[in-house]
Design a protein around this nucleic acid. Structure first.
Lengths: 239, 239
DNA sequence: CGCAAGAAAAATTTATATATTTTTTGTAAT
DNA sequence: ATTACAAAAAATATATAAATTTTTCTTGCG
């Protein structure tokens, strides 16, 4: 297994935060596989650090919903399931629909300009680094995140935005875990543009419908990915 | 200051969980005052424990929004403000309105029975232990929590329920912090009954309106409590 | 002879104690 | 009065120890 290499200098203040960032990246990318046990000794060697910063990082990640802790039995990478994917998606659709409506109700010229900019920048970066096969483009992911965050950023509630961020992270892991990334069948660029248009035209119902469809379609593709979920046969055979 | 005494036997498995429970109670009750610094030495002596379980507990409480952590500067009790109270209340109204509608849309006879039971039990316990002055009744608080949780419990999203629980905790602290607890001016029992009636009659709009009004009124009372928020004069004099 | 139950051993998580940085505070000098 | 330096206080990290869980091995019974 290839995990993040121990980079030498850019220590973000505390070791705990540094380990948190690296662990988070390894969890989201799938390098640390779902339901895998996170043994202290292994983590200490891999990330070259002590257990105090490690526990700190693992506890934060537990709060983020990426790690699971069982009392006196250690930490585990949060498992994935079709049921959880469906529930997370459903919740995200509900909550972001709410946040988007509130954002639009509190719209300002500045916010609309931010949205136009975010959409434009996203449209100028390729989804994949390779034209023939899918190769994750970190720059696109970053701009994609900013775009969706901007969409709901005017809602006026920090706690709601933080919750949306958590849901986004958890669902992002499903996307990275899934091999068939709906590439290049979908035109996600067009979808982002259409949502923006609806927002700018003031049509909240349309904007919400487009946004939720956007999320639902992504989930539907991943739900059909046999590679990330145990096939039904095997589950039946086990029981 | 009188904090929770070190009770001898009921240790919930790990020391960290035990400290978490006691710290949480002291934070919610206000025994640990807002913006107070949580020094390790003080906490270790007060709760008679080491720093590993303490850090664990403080990190969990940070995720709950009751504690704030500043890099290399330690932990602090989350500060309170009128702005945050207003925002938390607004968010809770939005999100619980959503959860209540979804609960009603997914209603079952079992759930309705649970709700009837929860409301009945709550109505049978006095709000205050004393008839003349306000004396917090833990049993009422417990049943109150269960009632509100039941109301939205059928929504079908664990993560949404967890988020609602967090908001409830944070707002509960404001209530405990406030001296004028709207007692006995309001008839919260009637409000709880009215919400249940609306739910049972299937009138979602009415139920949501009653619920959000319920939360908003509580917040309005606390917002006028000069004792918990720094008076405007003092803020102006400082700057 | 195979299987289940119990006890000892190993592995691992959790907690304490010690050491190292970092931040803050107090003092002196410009 | 302000800045620089030094001492202290406190947070963070490492290393060591204790307690718990899991595994393995042995013993007894069918």
């Amino acid at each position: 297994m290839e995990l993040t290499a121990a980079s030498p200098l850019p220590a973000p203040s505390t070791q705990a935060s540094h380990v948190y960032d690296r662990l988070r990246e390894d969890l989201l990318s799938g390098r640390l596989a779902p339901s895998r046990k996170l043994q202290m000794r292994f983590l200490m060697e891999t990330y070259q650090t002590g257990q105090t910063p490690l526990r700190e990082a693992l506890n934060r990640l537990t709060a983020d919903g990426l790690v699971e802790v069982r009392e006196q039995r250690g930490f585990y990478v949060k498992d994935v399931s079709r049921a959880e994917l469906a529930e997370l998606t459903k919740t995200r659709c509900w909550v972001e629909a709410l946040a988007l409506r509130e954002s639009m109700a509190a719209s300002t010229p500045e916010w609309e300009e931010q949205l136009v900019l975010a959409q434009h920048r996203l449209s100028r970066v390729p989804r994949s680094l390779s034209a023939t096969e899918f190769a994750d483009n970190p720059e696109w992911e970053k701009l994609h995140r900013i775009y969706h965050r901007t969409l709901i950023g005017q809602c006026g509630s920090q706690s709601l935005l933080a919750f949306c961020g958590q849901l986004a992270d958890q669902l992002y892991r499903y996307r990275r875990l899934s091999i068939s990334k709906a590439f290049p069948s979908r035109h996600v660029g067009d979808e982002h543009a259409a949502i923006m248009e609806a927002v700018l035209s003031g049509d909240a119902d349309l904007a919400v419908n487009l946004l939720t469809a956007h999320y639902q379609q992504t989930a539907d593709v991943i739900l059909q990915d046999e590679a990330i979920f145990p096939e039904l046969r095997r589950v039946a055979a086990r029981g």
